[in-house]
Design a binder for these strands. Structure first.
Lengths: 190, 190
DNA sequence: GACCCCGATGTCAGGAACTGTCATCAGTAC
DNA sequence: GTACTGATGACAGTTCCTGACATCGGGGTC
């Protein structure tokens, strides 16, 4: 006989996404989410630092994929290193998660507070990537620029992946966006 | 005979920055700020949408400088357009504001909530720039990439400007960072 | 000059997000 | 069997933020 059902955290996440989708982020109280998961408000805040964070768990692993790509890339060309990192990160979003990612993104795009949190996560990712690049010998400015550019490519590519039908996998889109960045920056058009 | 002292908004901003610097963002209540400005908490929220916003007023003009640069640039090379926009934006931060900017940045860097807000503002800037670039004929992806890259250059350059002594003006730093981005992306290093 | 509206502020009540603290009690270790 | 642990509940309290209504100097209208 268990005293509590296991998986409280997962239940909270599922209940939160469902409610946010139905009534919006602002229209949902933490107490409602907790009740839907059979828990109390206080317990929600033991699992998530604040109301927004319930949508952003598991970002650590995502960061690790980027860093692993940077560390294992067998080249010293920054663009090539970023390409490997993006390839690794794309593995985090297989095609069968596209629909789920879309739902989540709709919720985020509807609320400035959630957008702020997403941006903070991506900024943290850029900082982590900067550190990894510096360990590979880049100076501070170059590392920061490469990291920020990589994140920018990911942002643009991810938005495209979300918006598209079922055409291309994320990895292919990211490669195309990175190529477009290169041609944009390097091929002057008069 | 005036019923209230004028400049309520400015008094609130000054009081807020002073208190945030002294006791931190979290350690300062809105009621304290308002009292220091001779006003009530309710009036604070009539001037600023939330507690953080008091540090981020006047961003509209900043955005306008970027957009004006994009619109008036007499070239179709995206990097050159971004360069003009960055030149315009640098005018917003003359050297005698460096010390003030530094104080403000210390406060922001000490609080994740304020960092979120700053990132949201920069993201809005990127969106605005993307629109201006699209009006100049770039397709959606190219415009977004150029805008994001421009903002990334600004971020890196601004941080350098804040961190440096009194060496170079912001405009010079931004030009150097943009050049470094170009060489980073375009000059493959084996 | 009497009248009236406007706009910035004050006052008050209240909801929702968080936090600190202590109690509860199944499972586990010994 | 006793003590400890760890997830949860209960509850009070602070702060952020909002809605509703009152106040009253200034400026316009007649």
């Amino acid at each position: 006989m268990v005293r509590w059902e296991p998986g409280a955290r997962e239940r909270l996440q599922a209940a939160a996404l469902e409610r946010f989708g139905a009534r919006g982020f602002d229209g949902t109280t933490v107490a409602e989410i907790a009740a839907a998961a059979g828990l109390t408000e206080r317990t929600f805040f033991r699992h998530f630092a604040d109301k927004r964070e319930v949508l952003f768990a598991g970002q650590d692993e995502f960061e690790r994929l980027f860093v692993a790509g940077i560390e294992e890339a067998e080249t010293t060309d920054p663009v090539a290193i970023i390409a490997v990192a993006l390839d690794g990160a794309a593995a985090f979003f297989p095609d069968d998660r596209r629909s789920w990612s879309r739902m989540r993104q709709v919720v985020i795009d509807a609320d400035p507070g959630l957008q702020e949190r997403e941006l903070l996560k991506l900024s943290g990712l850029a900082t982590t990537m900067t550190g990894a690049l510096r360990r590979r010998g880049f100076d501070a400015t170059a590392a920061a620029l490469a990291a920020e550019s990589g994140v920018a490519v990911f942002r643009v590519g991810f938005a495209t992946w979300i918006a598209e039908g079922e055409d291309r996998p994320l990895a292919a889109i990211l490669r195309a966006v990175l190529a477009e960045l290169r041609s944009l920056v390097c091929a002057p058009r008069t």
